[in-house]
Design a protein around this nucleic acid. Structure first.
Lengths: 350, 350
DNA sequence: CGTTAGCACTCAATCTCTCCGAGTGCTAAC
DNA sequence: GTTAGCACTCGGAGAGATTGAGTGCTAACG
């Protein structure tokens, strides 16, 4: 059943009032504060309809109305207008991000803090990572008589290294030969391509160095493995500014959940990785503990790398504002990372 | 003025009761629950003395007594007995830590979680870092026609790298020459030794590559710089299990403080870096926001690297238990890190 | 027939008042 | 010096009573 224009208008007004005040919205206040050209009594009738249709809830008889999950969903899909950050806010944001970063870790944590600062909600940033890593090159470098460094560079340009200690001295030439050999053997391969059979061939070709090769190949495999999502979670205490968390038990429940990265990671994994912006309202997230909260996440990608930024807050959330903020920050983050990872800048990861 | 043995005994009983229950301790209960061989009235007299001497506080006339900061301090210094973790607890801890780690990041976060799990307080772990870094060696490796990798290895064995893009192709020989030259020039130097004058000499000796050298030397300096302490903070929601944080505002204050790493970092910096175990009770920490909380921190060191692990909680804290737990975890952490960093294992940092 | 005014009714929240019990401090007896 | 006993204090819990914000319904109005 279609909503009449008037119902839409009223629903929107209720939701926006409720987002702003966190108090159930009463018909009289609505008539007073919005120029709807309707009396409280008429609004009451419409409200009763909207409640029957499932867009509104009533905490108890003599309270105002509160949006239901379905109400929020309709609002987000059809009613929500793009919120424009103020010039000052945009300028502030630009300025915060307009500086040089030199460590990935630093970018991620600062972006996370920034998101929390702007939205006043706990923020989550997933480190960029490649979905299907392949080896671009492998290098062995002798750094001491018995210590070499294995450096693995992937398709996407990630660089990782590991120290390797030998039981006896190895000379430069040997290391170079091994280095070239391995690079040729492994270049272009993904984790699935490095089969035991192929590994055996490598060992056989360089029989006397099998021990060394074993460690190196092991490390390469480790680099290619799609490790668990690395997350930065910040600003969790912001949740306490929301009246729905005045109850210490609810706060505890929420914060315990956020304390464990695997929880958050699991929640993120349920999102669509292709959509620009994902909005999950209440139980839509599919995570029991978060059924009273909403999550908004933007996906970013830099070359082959992809990641996520987002926030988590009560279902009564300023969706419009969060979406705009995330969009702005997201695009700037892509720029920063492109410059940093794609180009000539430092890049090391654990 | 010296405390009589009897006063000490009573003080200890009061503090331990209070730590266990979080309720002001009454004379009658003390007489009942502890075998002091004294009547409640006598205990009341002693309590009055202890209060006058500053070891106890009274929330209001008809409540029991509560330890003062001075009382806790005396307890920690003179009365506290080593708490023995149960066999099961120790076994559990050992088991949790008895597995192989392969990333520093992972060790730190898991140790932090473990501390929180055992103590039920928010935990803090500072990443190991060198105080006075020196260059051990610098390598340049060509990974593409116009892209080289700078690898800097410090005294303590930390490895860092950065990609470097050239405007025109550079051949292997040149890179090797530059690599050797730089390694010789910079080996053994600390940040303070790399003066502008010395840098000029380097540029002059290799005039035509000044541009490249500039970037490399810049990166080396960055590696040597004593960057801000890197921290992992975990289990913050544990604080909410303590009745002193039932007041949402107090909880918010605490959690906001913990949300900002720089706050915690500053607090840690005020501690003695040489003591095995630091205990700061209430206002002793010198941090206004934490004047109702205590902090217990153990220092660890691995070769040239040093770091800290600890917890933060209400002044009414199980000091004995926390100290034992930290000691145990600290020694095991040193072993793990020694194995991981000192030896042949992976090690990369941002 | 949609809209509105008016009124009865509901219900959470708040306030007040009382009461209770846990504790202390003091005094007097042991 | 220790203890029993008792008066006094004070916070906390509980019971009503009160308030006021809201709704739902009905009847009148244009």
């Amino acid at each position: 059943m279609e909503l009449s224009e008037r119902k839409k208008m009223i629903l929107q007004a209720i939701i926006e009032d409720y987002i702003a005040t966190a108090e159930p919205v009463a018909s009289r206040n609505l008539a007073k504060n919005h120029d709807l050209g309707l009396s409280a009594a008429t609004i009451r009738n419409e409200m009763a309809d909207l409640e029957e249709m499932g867009y509104l809830d009533k905490p108890h008889t003599s309270a105002g109305r509160v949006p239901s999950e379905m109400g929020y969903r309709f609002y987000v899909d059809s009613l929500m207008q793009k919120y424009s950050l103020t010039i000052d806010e945009i300028a502030g944001l630009q300025q915060s991000m307009d500086r040089s970063y030199n460590k990935l870790e630093g970018v991620i944590s600062e972006i996370s803090d920034l998101i929390s600062k702007v939205t006043h909600y706990p923020s989550v940033v997933a480190f960029p990572r490649e979905s299907q890593r392949r080896v671009r090159s492998v290098k062995l470098i002798l750094i001491e008589e018995r210590v070499a460094l294995v450096v693995v560079i992937t398709d996407g340009g990630e660089v990782r290294n590991k120290k390797l200690r030998f039981s006896e001295a190895v000379d430069y030439e040997t290391i170079d030969v091994l280095s070239d050999f391995l690079s040729k053997q492994l270049a272009g391969l993904g984790a699935a391509d490095i089969t035991p059979a192929r590994v055996m061939l490598i060992y056989e070709a360089m029989g006397q160095y099998a021990e060394i090769l074993k460690v190196v190949v092991g490390f390469v495999l480790e680099c290619l493995k799609d490790e668990g999502e690395r997350l930065y979670i910040g600003g969790t205490s912001n949740i306490l500014n929301n009246p729905e968390f005045e109850d210490i038990n609810r706060a505890k429940e929420f914060l315990s959940f956020m304390d464990r990265k695997e929880n958050v990671s699991k929640m993120l994994s349920l999102l669509d990785g292709d959509k620009d912006i994902n909005i999950k309202i209440g139980s839509e997230s599919g995570v029991e503990e978060m059924k009273e909260n909403s999550i908004i996440v933007a996906n970013y990608s830099v070359g082959l790398l992809r990641g996520k930024i987002g926030i988590i807050g009560p279902t009564r959330m300023n969706y419009a504002r969060v979406v705009s903020s995330l969009e702005l920050i997201n695009s700037r983050l892509s720029e920063i990372l492109t410059k940093m990872l794609g180009d000539s800048d430092s890049q090391q990861e654990v």
